[in-house]
Design a protein around this nucleic acid. Structure first.
Length: 422
RNA sequence: GGCAGGUUGCCCGAGCGGCCAAUGGGAGCGGACUGUAAAUCCGUCGGCUUUGCCUUCGAAGGUUCGAAUCCUUCACCUGCCA
């Protein structure tokens, strides 16, 4: 191994779950700048952690000199890829268009659009929307043996519960993307999540069948929790990158709370630190887990990547204030106020509502019933003191740091109430 | 097109005329123990103006004092036959 090959780095990071001919891929990546693509379907208004894996991987390839084509699935998003959980509900064209735009803006932040190997954004709607059914069936469909399509894992699992022709056909659209990008832009490599492996190889094979030339592909592993279940299932669902859908504070907290046994794996996947530093953090986590050095590094780095350094710094300060273990009254108003604004806060003017109402108002509880239950379970706190009376109404004497009430549910979830007037 | 089976709370799944807001498991939430970790144990888990009321068991009607449970129609899913 004379010159470092980016594939070795990706392998070290555990990012290669599947790949086409590994040696051919290594040769390609060891040569000149490879044009590669990765696609994101607008199935939600925001990307999530799974997509982030692909984005940082694309960036690694770009930093190694290769040229990214970032595809947003304006067309494939209209169809929906088959998943095990069952048939999707089709989104309207307006919704898909709106999400396409949001996703397009979001992906733009993760790759560079400058230099010799500047990234290019493409939308498969551009070459798919105008295609006639006749052309599609003749030029694309002809290359897909149905018996092979039926053998694909996701399809096979769906045969019992049912799958529409629409979703069954998804692989043709995505494969067509690879062929299109191969022909029009010289793209010879596609990567994606391992759940996309069937679609990815479909594209590589279509390129080979139609042009007789070799296309490369690899898939990253699915990230799971220590117990093997899917990750990113926090309150409200996935781990979103959009600050509107998941506050940067909550995002940071997620990474800070990663299980010890997963820290190393996640650092390898997401961190841009040198290998030695990551190995050192892994060692620290193994030897002194209570220091949570790995978690802190992970949370800092990923939050900075997604939400910026300034925001991350504010969150760190907020976390230190709220979790520092000191007395709230010892904190100065500016510090506590800033911390609570990061954690989530609401404003109340005049009369102060009951604790139950405040729990709902701040979003710490979904309903009054849940708020009462939480109090009954001993999980509600006002200014770090357990609340036992569901009828309790805080008074102005309870205000700390110049007008704040600090509400907490459980050990980790804080919210502030800024009281004015009265 | 015919026949059979199915559609229950976030998910999986019991219930098959009153004792059903509906057994059980998982997820979630809270407590204890910790390190804002894991594991474990305990509790909780539709809503509300909370000793009661309201809305839920694919949809709409109907039978009944009373329906998730019976009948009719519709929608969707699965299997077998055409």
């Amino acid at each position: 191994m004379s010159t470092p090959n980016v594939l070795d780095d990706l392998e070290w990071r555990g990012l290669i779950a599947h790949s086409t001919d590994r040696d051919a891929l290594r040769d390609a990546l060891g040569g000149g700048s490879v044009r590669f693509y990765v696609g994101f379907d607008p199935t939600a208004p925001s990307l999530h952690m799974g997509n982030l894996v692909q984005l940082v991987t694309a960036r690694r390839l770009q930093d190694a000199g290769h040229t990214p084509y970032i595809l947003v699935g304006g067309a494939t998003g209209m169809i929906g890829d088959p998943r095990d959980s069952g048939e999707r509900t089709l989104n309207t064209a307006e919704t898909v268009a709106e999400w396409t735009e949001k996703v397009r803006r979001q992906v733009s932040g993760f790759v560079s659009f400058e230099g010799d190997n500047a990234a290019t954004l493409v939308n498969n709607h551009d070459w798919t929307a105008g295609l006639s059914v006749i052309d599609f069936l003749r030029d694309i469909g002809k290359h897909f043996p149905v018996n092979r399509m039926l053998a694909r894992d996701t399809v096979r699992r769906r045969l019992e519960s049912g799958i529409s022709y629409t979703e069954f056909s998804y692989v043709l659209l995505q494969s067509m993307d690879f062929l299109h990008l191969f022909r029009e832009h010289g793209v010879t490599l596609q990567h994606g999540g391992s759940d996309q492996w069937g679609n990815i190889t479909g594209g590589a094979e279509l390129v080979r069948r139609v042009t007789g030339e070799q296309a490369h592909a690899f898939a990253t592993p699915l990230i799971t929790k220590a117990d093997g279940t899917k990750y990113g299932k926090t309150e409200g669902g996935a781990l979103w990158l959009d600050a509107e859908m998941m506050s940067p504070y909550a995002f940071y907290q997620f990474w800070l709370n990663v299980e010890d046994v997963k820290v190393g794996e996640l650092l390898r996947i997401f961190s841009t630190r040198p290998h030695e530093e990551i190995e050192d953090l892994e060692k620290q986590t193994a030897e002194k887990p209570f220091l949570r050095a790995g978690q802190r590094a992970l949370a800092d780095e990923i939050t900075t990547l997604v939400h910026g350094a300034r925001e991350t710094e504010a969150i760190r300060a907020a976390s230190a204030a709220l979790f520092g273990g000191g007395e709230l009254v010892d904190l100065d108003g500016a510090t506590l106020g800033a911390a609570l604004r990061e954690a989530g806060s609401v404003e109340v003017a005049g009369e102060i509502p009951t604790v139950v109402d405040l729990l709902v108002l701040t979003g710490l509880a979904q309903s009054k019933g849940e708020a009462r239950r939480t109090i009954g379970e001993g999980g509600a706190y006002l200014n770090n003191a357990r609340v036992t009376d569901p009828e309790l109404t805080p008074s102005h004497d309870d205000l700390v740091a110049g007008g704040w009430l600090v509400l907490r549910r459980g050990k980790k979830r804080f919210a502030g109430v800024a009281v004015s007037g009265g």
